[in-house]
Nucleic acid binder design. Sequence first.
DNA 1: GTACTTGTTGAACG
DNA 2: TCGTTCAACAAGTA
Length: 278
Amino acid sequence: MPELPEVEVIKLSLQRKIIGLTIKKIQILSPKSFIGNPNLAQGQKVLKIERKAKLLLINLDKNLLLFHLKMTGQLILEDGKRFIGGHPTEDMMGKMPNNHTRVIFSFSDGSHLYFNDQRRFGWVKIIDNGKLTIDNLGPEPLEKEFTWEILKNNLLKHKSMPVKVAIMDQKVVSGVGNIYSNEACFNAGIDPRTKISNLSDLQFKRLHLGVLKSLKDGIAHGGSTRAHFRDPEGHRGYFLDYAYVYGRDKHPCKVCGTIIKKISLGGRGTYFCPQCQK
DNA sequence: GTACTTGTTGAACG
DNA sequence: TCGTTCAACAAGTA
């Protein structure tokens, strides 16, 4: 599923492709997937594309289009020959729209942007410019505002929580979900069950670097995944190929060979290496 | 039929 | 009010 790195990769692709184009028409195939009045966007130009946490923002003249891909959302741009998207599956190679297409954006130059979402968890929203209020998001991990001291400070609001759960709080650091919080704990060499109050400064520093490494790895691999999305073999394993622990229970640790364990923390699957993470 | 998966929201707890 | 846990959400897989 798309997490922060995938959304970042999609943002970079779209920036190269649709800035300056005018929206001709928005077709809604699944009413639940679109919030607001799609007619508002008609005739407006794409000015700017941003990402906040896992949200993708497309700035128009007067309005703002917000996308959340959740688990299975894809954004696919078809400009005659190429597709650009996220969460690659075989059906991306077929014709658009397909039976998972929820919303179609048509541009003035004849290209189309397809919002596909197999499980319909994701959504598109249209709001007035300047009406976006994000008051429940912590620092962007890829900006320089994200320091280990800030991370420590924010985590200390959850003294009794296991570190793996606390780091998924969007107010602590925005955009880190289950996969990357598992990977970040591994990178930091910290047992995901460790309570925040028991972490040393050294561990906070390692955690900070661990979060960054997991996200940067993700962006690097998200990019390479995208380049290979035409390979039908690639669609299922694209996260697990590079993950150290996520989804690898009962498999040997890539570093020390110890069998990866899976437990449940905060109601989510939690994976760790009992040897590397103390 | 059951258990489990995703991020976010909101309810309900002490 | 705050920290925390948990159910709900849609729809699929094993």
